[in-house]
Write a protein that binds this DNA or RNA. Structure first.
Length: 828
RNA sequence: GCCGGAGUGGCGGAAUUGGCAUACGCGAUCGACUCAAAAUCGAUUGCCCUUGCGGGCUUGUGGGUUCGAAUCCCACCUCCGGCACCA
């Protein structure tokens, strides 16, 4: 008997799928569109094509493909496309090193990804394939930029950015690792530069509210986004510095503690700092402090155990609630990026202010009484962040602080010294990059007209070929002088092109829409296509994108809906995040030399083994450690199924299995049990590890029982049915072998068959194993009729010899019967 | 520090409306086949005591609720992930 040779089987089926374009689906109105079927959009995050796919890709696409297959066989019209996030830094860095144009290396990688996806047998609709670096794609990325620009959602302004002095370039946040440049290890500093931003903060509240629209997202992903957006409610309160005639608004979440403000702090970057100290004795010291802080990296400044530092300004502001003058300081624990860059300091009720006050010998006042009466009134127990009655707060004394909160804000508002306010941690999205390998930002600068968007009909603004990719402190595109020099679309005067390109997260924030109408040369997508297919019914990807990509895509969806291009508010109705695969307990990396190349395993064991293994390692949402023994175990299982198939094909004829007795009944029931189990595991959060183990059990039982069943019509039929069912159930994970087994034993194409249905009659057996406990300890197991009444079960339990031993000389004080399961006799 | 998630055999993991702990896989041991090995097939495999029959113990730790707890409650420990001076 020939052994399991995955290569031959896999090539056979891949050829069928390629020739027949099996996984293509049509849009509404197109030929082949199946009106009667419900739709399902199954999508995995598109890969960044770099070198070869790794095991993370294998797992993501194996999981997504299993879901796609499962849905197809449940009668859904499944759209399951694929593309490449093909702009990005690794290709550009490679170009700087080797001189090879990023396009060449990228397209080589794409070819490798395409080949491997086909070798893995992923059921992709190739007619919808896209790559974000092609002008056909980024034309529409630019179009969206212009749409946002027209709406005022894209704007240009000066902002602090991460700057690597050695490479003389701006770095993306994700290129800054622990305050250092990812490429050369140099510590990054902040610089102010003119940059392009998307106004995502306008959508902060909707991004929060619309979590409600999501059907099923992991709770921790939502929590991470919620924290990232960081909405806090409070009040804006204005403190006035009479000496320089300036108002200083602050944001606070605790207006109820206003009476306890004993000093006032500005961030070192605060724009009014110069003016405050000009000509003052503190001028020199403040300047030195600001410079020192400015030289420090974000890492140093944010260090956990950092001691509070600061300098008094020699100025004071007036507390609007009580007219008290309080001293001003500059201190680096106040951040310019959050709130107004200034705070009222309430050391009695804020641990950071308390720490600062201790260090500088500043007064600490209690304005809210604590719950502990011992410590309620004096400085004991401060700083206190809880609730309680007000004290030392003038006419609010005695009121509960929660109540006073509202009254103080209302009163300040009446005085014109404050108002309710909401603050967010979320910043606007910095999208410009001084890099070559990205979509050019489609604007020109005209001396007369200023910033002028490139008219949509002139898109794409194509990326020019250049010689030197090394960044010089501005985008390498600036060196392409012929390209930069253009004419103003508005007044036709000489003008310059924007030389920055867009963050690659922009490309991946809308790709799921382009899939819907990938060939459309007239529009980014047709509204009818997006109305039909959106939202994505199941999105699958790594949890590392929990915040950035997923939030940007949500923002784009909302903005595009507002612009009338989309009919949904949320792009991804259901999200599944797969866990990371490690090796020897560690994250795979080239430097550690512990990487696993899926290609090697596909070559050696076949794609079905590799795919099934990554689904079998453990719950897919959790990580797992890759072991070669584990791969071999799965390969052994698939080989077993294969050999069983060959034997069954040779020894039996196709026939309808009938309800039977004895071993035939047992195996038939097992097959139906497996159908039920696999189906339920799919439906309950993709528990593929246990689904696969159920098919293993079915195959094990078939091996155990087959020799006793061969030879009778009934037995043959049951063995054949069980084996074909194993093929059918393993198909979503091992599509080639599943197809082969099913074709040989049942005939036809398994993916065209409806998902099997378990016969409820075969899921219940006539007898059950009755567990008998004495005082909660297991003493015997008895076969009992499933329908036996309680008295009967009790009688059987008491009659057991093993049980009797433990009842000897004791009195039964209580009898607990769980029908069909257990009897517990309580004795004394 | 804050917010999540998780602690079960030698290993990955199963079992959660409270009712057989350790499914399935790996590893290990033994047997069959073989000149032999590999592959394959079959058996055993939580720990401790016991020649055996059998008994005791066991789901991070300590308490609690219950006839009965991996599962519920309280306190604590450890690990992983995210955020981290966010006013």
């Amino acid at each position: 008997m020939a052994g399991y040779e995955p290569k031959a089987i896999e090539q056979k089926w891949q050829a069928v799928w390629a020739e027949e374009n099996t996984w293509e689906v049509a849009n509404p109105g197109q030929p082949g569109f199946e009106e009667e079927k419900p739709k399902s959009y199954v999508l995995e995050m598109l890969p960044y094509p770099s070198g070869e796919p790794h095991v993370g890709h294998l797992k993501c696409y194996a999981v997504g493909d299993a879901i796609a297959h499962f849905r197809r066989r449940h009668g859904f019209q499944v759209i399951h496309p694929m593309g490449y996030d093909s702009f990005g830094l690794p290709a550009e860095n490679n170009a700087i090193k080797t001189g090879e144009p990023p396009r060449v290396a990228t397209e080589r990688s794409i070819a490798s990804f395409q080949r491997q996806f086909r070798e893995w047998g992923i059921s992709i609709d190739w007619s919808r394939e896209l790559a974000t670096h092609t002008p056909e794609y980024y034309r529409w990325t630019q179009w969206i930029f212009l749409q946002l620009f027209e709406r005022g959602l894209a704007y240009r302004t000066e902002a602090p950015v991460q700057w690597c002095p050695k490479d003389a370039t701006v770095l993306a946040n994700e290129q800054v690792v622990d305050g250092r440049c990812e490429r050369c290890g140099t510590e990054v500093i902040q610089r102010n530069l003119e940059q392009w931003f998307f106004r995502i903060t306008d959508y902060a509240d909707r991004l929060l509210e619309d979590f409600e629209l999501l059907e099923s997202w992991p709770e921790h992903v939502i929590t991470m986004q919620r924290n990232w957006i960081g909405r806090s409610e409070g009040a804006e309160v204005v403190f006035r510095c009479e000496e320089v005639d300036l108002d200083f608004p602050v944001f606070t979440t605790r207006p109820d503690t206003l009476f306890g403000a004993t000093f006032f702090v500005l961030a070192p970057e605060h724009p009014e700092l110069e003016r405050l100290v000009a000509g003052m004795p503190a001028e020199e010291e403040v300047r030195e402090y600001v410079n020192r802080v400015g030289r420090e990296s974000a890492e140093e400044r944010g260090a956990e155990d950092r001691e509070k530092t600061g300098v008094p300004l020699g100025r004071s502001v007036v507390n609007p609630v009580n007219g008290e003058e309080i001293p001003m300081f500059v201190a680096d624990y106040v951040l310019m990026e959050y709130g107004t860059g200034a705070i009222m300091a309430v050391p009695g009720h804020d641990s950071r202010d308390y720490e600062f006050a201790q260090k500088f010998g500043l007064p600490v006042e209690r304005v809210i009484e604590g719950e502990d009466p011992e410590q309620a009134r004096d400085e004991q127990g401060l700083p206190y962040s809880g609730d309680g009655p007000m004290t030392g707060s003038g006419r609010f004394d005695g009121k509960h602080n929660r109540e006073a909160y509202e009254e103080i804000v209302a009163w300040l508002e009446g005085e014109g010294r404050g108002k309710p306010a909401v603050n967010y941690r979320l910043r606007d999205w910095l999208v410009s990059r001084q890099r070559y390998w990205g979509a050019p930002i489609p604007v020109v600068y005209c001396d007369a007209c200023g910033i002028v968007p490139v008219p949509a009909e002139q898109l794409p603004v194509e990326l020019p070929e250049i010689e030197d990719y090394a960044p010089q402190g501005k985008s390498p595109l600036a060196a392409a002088e012929d390209w930069v020099a253009t004419e103003c679309p508005r007044c036709a005067a000489a003008a310059r092109r924007e030389t920055d390109t867009m963050d690659t997260f922009v490309d991946s924030s809308w790709y799921f829409l382009r899939y819907l109408d990938a060939q459309n040369a007239e529009a980014a997508w047709d509204r009818a296509a997006s109305d039909y297919w959106m939202p994505v019914d199941q999105y699958i990807g790594g949890v590392e994108h929990a915040i950035l990509h997923l939030m940007y895509a949500r923002f784009f969806t909302k903005a595009l809906a507002d612009l009338g291009h989309l009919g949904v508010q949320e792009p991804f109705a259901n999200l599944f995040t797969q866990g990371m695969i490690t090796r020897d307990g560690a994250k795979m990396s080239k430097s550690k030399g512990n990487t696993v190349s899926p290609g090697d395993y596909v070559e050696r064991y076949g794609a079905d083994t590799a795919r099934t293994y990554v689904c079998f390692m453990g719950p897919p949402e959790r990580g797992g450690d890759w072991t070669d023994e584990g791969v071999e175990g799965v390969n052994r299982f698939l080989s077993r199924l294969w050999r069983l198939c060959e034997e069954v094909e040779a020894r039996t004829e196709p026939a309808e299995p009938s309800a039977a007795e004895g071993a035939a009944r047992e195996l038939l029931a097992k097959a139906h049990w497996a159908i039920e189990k696999v189906t339920r595991d799919f439906q309950r959060g993709f528990q593929f590890n246990t689904a696969i183990s159920a098919v293993m059990e079915l195959v094990n039982d078939a091996y155990r029982l087959k020799d006793g069943l061969y030879g009778t019509a009934e037995g043959d039929a049951v063995v054949r049915f069980a084996t074909a069912t194993a093929g059918s159930l393993i198909f979503p994970f091992a599509p080639h072998l599943g197809s082969e087994v099913y074709e040989r034993l049942a005939g036809g194409r398994v993916w065209e068959q409806p998902w099997p249905q378990a016969d409820p009659d075969l899921l219940v057996s006539d007898t059950v194993t009755l567990v008998v406990q004495v005082n909660g300890k297991l003493r015997d197991r008895i076969e009992a009729p499933a329908e036996a009444p309680e008295e009967e079960l009790l009688r059987l339990a008491r009659e057991s010899e093993k049980v009797a031993k433990h009842l000897d000389g004791q009195q039964i004080v209580k009898e607990i019967v769980v029908p069909g399961k257990l009897v517990n006799l309580v004795v004394r």
